[in-house]
């Protein structure tokens, strides 16, 4: 873009103005303007919703997926225009606003206590099956993930980064570091889990005929897709929603305990 080339004083003023507004100028870098991040997040998500509507629900047009891809693409283009790299531009221009929206995941996560409590009858009845299924299910999944990662050719660090992804990001990242993985890759895996479940969840549930057992469907969605999977499960029904909510909590604690032992067993650490 021409605005930053400072060929004329007029253009320089515009460049400084835009840089200040986005928080990308050296002076404004620490302050950062949160409004751009909030606006961009809403814009790309709403474009996603619109595409999803006119695309008649085509799975690649799921708003979260479109929002993510379009958002990264816009930041990439803007970084090019400002003559900096995407990561730096993301940190100075997008992150302040993105963090404000991100913060609301805190109350949104604890809100899942509500669908969980709505089907307290199911929790009381099946608590033993729930805990056992999550422990055994995770252990079996870890073997499959380990050998899949090995087969596809990830190195030791890559494999260790793939193991803790069933937990929420805040638990998965320190565990990845502890077992010799890269916590940034693990965080990426946790995010991709949610995006994949959000885009493919309905289709996967149908294809693998998972919904025959609503308790299992809920636990599976909560484990694979974290809170986003739970939101999908709430749409399937109250039992699924409740089970996915409990899965998010229990699987995180199970990962805390099981994954380091599994990594030792496989000689990763």
């Amino acid at each position: 873009m021409i605005i930053l080339t400072e060929t004329t004083p007029h253009m320089a003023v515009w460049g400084k103005w835009l840089g200040d507004a986005l928080g990308t100028n050296a002076a404004g870098a620490s302050a950062g303007n949160a409004l751009f991040g909030i606006f961009l997040s809403l814009l790309v998500y709403l474009i996603g919703q619109w595409l999803f509507k006119i695309g008649k629900g085509f799975f690649l047009f799921q708003p979260l997926f479109v929002g993510m891809v379009l958002g990264i693409f816009i930041l990439y283009l803007m970084a090019k225009a400002f003559g900096t790299d995407t990561a730096t531009f993301y940190k100075s221009a997008y992150l302040p606003g993105g963090n404000i929206i991100f913060w609301f995941l805190n109350p949104a996560t604890i809100a899942f206590a509500i669908p969980l409590y709505r089907r307290n009858d199911v929790v009381k009845k099946f608590w033993l099956e729930i805990v056992l299924s999550l422990i055994v299910g995770l252990f079996v999944s870890l073997f499959v993930i380990y050998f899949a990662a090995k087969l596809i050719g990830l190195d030791k660090v890559g494999i260790a980064s793939m193991l803790p992804q069933a937990a929420t990001t805040a638990i998965a990242m320190p565990i990845a570091t502890a077992i010799g993985g890269n916590s940034a890759v693990t965080a990426m895996a946790c995010i991709l889990n949610a995006v994949i479940i959000y885009a493919l969840g309905d289709w996967l549930v149908k294809f693998f005929r998972i919904n025959h057992d609503p308790v299992g469907a809920g636990l599976g969605l909560g484990t694979a897709g974290h809170t986003v999977g739970s939101a999908k499960a709430v749409q399937l029904g109250s039992i699924q929603g409740s089970m996915a909510s409990i899965a998010v909590v229990v699987i995180s604690i199970v990962v805390d305990i099981v994954v380091p032992s599994f990594a030792k067993l496989m000689g990763l650490m």
């Binding site: 990561a87 997008y94 995941l105 990662a149 890559g158 793939m162 890269n182 940034a184 995006v195």
Partner: peptide, 30 residues
């Protein structure tokens, strides 16, 4: 919740260099 996850998705913009190295394999394994 899906909207609140958009910043997490866009956060991948900061890790594009990791994706360049082993990106395709990582995405397939995930």
């Amino acid at each position: 919740i899906a909207f609140l996850f958009v910043p997490s998705g866009i956060q991948l913009a900061a890790s594009l260099d990791i994706l360049k190295a082993q990106g395709v394999q990582i995405v397939i394994v995930v």
